[in-house]
């Protein structure tokens, strides 16, 4: 927990510096009061102070008990990586491929990866999630979900 907090503080400090630098091009004050750069200036300073506080606390303070959360095992890491990659793939594919096929592939990939491997169950959920949801949106809510190059 100590090293993790140190790293978190460091990351926040870097983020504060980045946000401060990005905010420099914005005008700090206008004739009628704070400009768009006013809050970035002060809040990035505050964030840097808080980050330093978190780092100091990690170095000087007594050790903290880690939060009561599941441990990160290799299996969890692999599943997490697949989940993240799948959401990224959805973001890339949903417009060219259409909602139905994208959601079908997402469910067909995630279900077995996360530990549900009954073929019929996976197929049923994937089809219902991809095509059933789209039908629901189309017919009941009158909201078209994207149709891909395939025409579905």
């Amino acid at each position: 927990m100590r090293n993790a907090q140190l790293a978190a503080g460091g990351a926040l400090l870097a983020l504060a510096a980045f946000l401060f630098a990005q905010g420099q091009s914005l005008s700090y004050y206008t004739p009628l009061g704070p400009g768009p750069g006013f809050f970035p200036y002060w809040l990035s300073g505050l964030l840097a102070l808080l980050a330093l506080g978190i780092m100091l606390r990690a170095i000087l303070g007594p050790p903290e008990a880690p939060p009561n959360e599941p441990p990160l095992t290799p299996r969890v890491a692999w599943r997490g990586a697949v989940a993240i990659a799948t959401i990224g793939a959805v973001a890339l594919l949903i417009d060219p491929l259409g909602f139905r096929l994208t959601m079908l592939c997402m469910l067909a990939t995630l279900l077995p990866t996360l530990g549900y491997r009954r073929p019929l169950g996976v197929a049923a959920i994937a089809v219902a999630g991809g095509f059933g949801t789209a039908e629901l949106f189309q017919r009941v809510l009158a909201t078209p979900l994207p149709v891909g190059l395939l025409g579905i």
């Binding site: 594919l93 491929l97 994208t102 592939c105 067909a108 990939t109 077995p112």
Partner: peptide, 20 residues
């Protein structure tokens, strides 16, 4: 399982060319 899903996706991207 992951690779199979990925392969399905890739095939699905290529298909529209023929339709177009």
């Amino acid at each position: 399982a992951f690779l199979a899903g990925f392969a399905t996706a890739t095939a699905a991207i290529m298909l529209p060319w023929f339709f177009a």
